[in-house]
Design a protein around this nucleic acid. Structure first.
Lengths: 270, 270
DNA sequence: ATTCACACTTCCACTCAGCGGAAGCATAGG
DNA sequence: CCTATGCTTCCGCTGAGTGGAAGTGTGAAT
């Protein structure tokens, strides 16, 4: 992205660039996606008029787009005429998750088995980090997988490991957009402190999250080098079990696995 | 696919009705969705030219659509320039799943606890049944949830319970489109036999799947009456534990829960 | 029971977004 | 180095998409 901007200097009688769809893209598709996202933000349900209010688009336009989504099963319509996200999206999401976590799973499972703690793979999605695969340790078998969950980048191991792959300017843009809320007293909440931390991470070769996301949980994370989308691999567990000495064992294994994962992600099945 | 073929004979200058998008819908959105679906069918990954071949659309058109999806994170692009489904879809699918299984989960969990077997909620999606929520029994804790999985309607308890809510003509259309492959020797593979079975289900008030999907697994399923999309609730387990006498206990509870679910699905949180 | 108000849906003519043929680039293979 | 293949950009034409206005249904108020 970051395409047609910053060159607003010329005094040409520009007809107001605004926040239009980046050129070379399809307006109606972009709008349809915006509607889906809005519904997701609203908890998966919305009325037509609510969508109109949020987007500023005229009702007939939205209605037509929703009809299209409806016929494809991407949204459903309740008897109250309100819309909800549809069953077909589950399938797509599953497929995407499988694709992303595809070759990854065996590596993660092996890693979790070897180190005995929970392993996560996450990549950046807009301004957040999204978990795309997980191998749980036997200790904490959770009913609900974390896959699909989005977390702030500044407050998690994987998040910081991902940010460390980006230029500082981009990092600042991200935190400017989404902010840096504190999840715990340990969370980094200052942009400059974050940049310093990222420099340390690049130097050291791995990120540490020491109760910054959840008190009592420590996490070591490394980048997956050369992944198509900035990606990170982490291992985490209770501070009691996951001490700093644990890093000496874990980090080399993480790096090795990350390198293998990189190959797998770039040319699947190769 | 199968679009502009076979009718090469007539010399009439017919503007060719074809398999157009139903009127009042948005062509480009429909096409974008088709691309996503194709990618999912192809295992989550495809090259531009493959998509062109499958859809019959010209390359530039597809390229533009993919660019839009790309910028929204609905697809990613590998260094090989091939496309894969993107991380953002996971989030959407999660949200859709949460929405669909929303109020349902507590009911399912209670039901699973009360009856001690795995409970599933499924709804129809095109020509298949898709699981939208599950509460597993303690017996068989699976690593991978079944949520999102799509199954044939004719070979499963939930499937048949869903079909029983549809007119025979619609049922025949569905099986004509997707066929009736046998999952086990018990699977119903004849359309007429299926219609007879559905009549029995409507009469009896619940569906039985006796090893038709998987040998040794029995399942009782009831419709969720008045759901916006035809939906069914089932309980299933090994034939050894789930005998026919079990139905006497289970079915009334299933019916009661289904009725409660119906209310919940129609007006969430009410 | 009747009216009113609101929200959704359909209609239709204008027009600009989207389309796709053709030309331009990269990248892999010879 | 050259060729082949497949992706990407360009650009003028046009019909798909748009959105104002009118219609319809539903639920609340009187």
């Amino acid at each position: 992205m970051g395409s047609t901007d910053s060159t607003g200097s010329s005094g040409a009688p520009q007809p107001e660039p605004r926040e239009k769809v980046a050129s070379g893209q399809v307006q109606s598709v972009d709008r349809a996606i915006e509607l889906l996202e809005l519904m997701a933000d609203a908890g998966g349900e919305a009325a037509l008029s609510e969508l109109a209010a949020s987007t500023g688009l005229p009702l007939p336009t939205i209605h037509r787009l929703m009809r299209t989504l409806l016929s494809r099963g991407y949204v459903r319509q309740l008897p109250s005429r309100r819309y909800t996200l549809g069953p077909r999206l589950i399938r797509l999401g599953e497929s995407a998750g499988r694709q992303l976590g595809a070759g990854a799973r065996p590596y993660l499972t092996a890693l979790a088995a070897e180190l005995g703690e929970t392993v996560n793979l996450a990549m950046i999605d807009r301004d957040m980090a999204v978990y795309v695969a997980q191998a749980a340790s036997r200790h904490s078998m959770r009913m609900f997988t974390e896959v699909g969950r989005r977390v702030f980048t500044h407050a998690t191991g994987v998040g910081k490991a991902v940010l460390a792959q980006l230029p500082d300017a981009t990092v600042l843009e991200i935190v400017a957009r989404v902010g840096m809320p504190a999840a715990t007293p340990q969370t980094i909440t200052d942009p400059q402190a974050l940049l310093t931390e990222l420099a340390t991470i690049r130097e050291r070769g791995y990120a540490i999250d020491d109760g910054e996301q959840e008190i009592g949980v420590r996490c070591f994370a490394v980048e997956v080098p050369g992944a198509p989308t900035p990606t990170a691999l982490s291992i985490s567990g209770p501070s009691a079990r996951v001490g700093y000495d644990f890093a000496e064992t874990a980090v080399p294994v993480l790096h090795r696995t990350a390198a293998e994962l990189a190959k797998e992600l770039i040319s699947p099945g190769a």
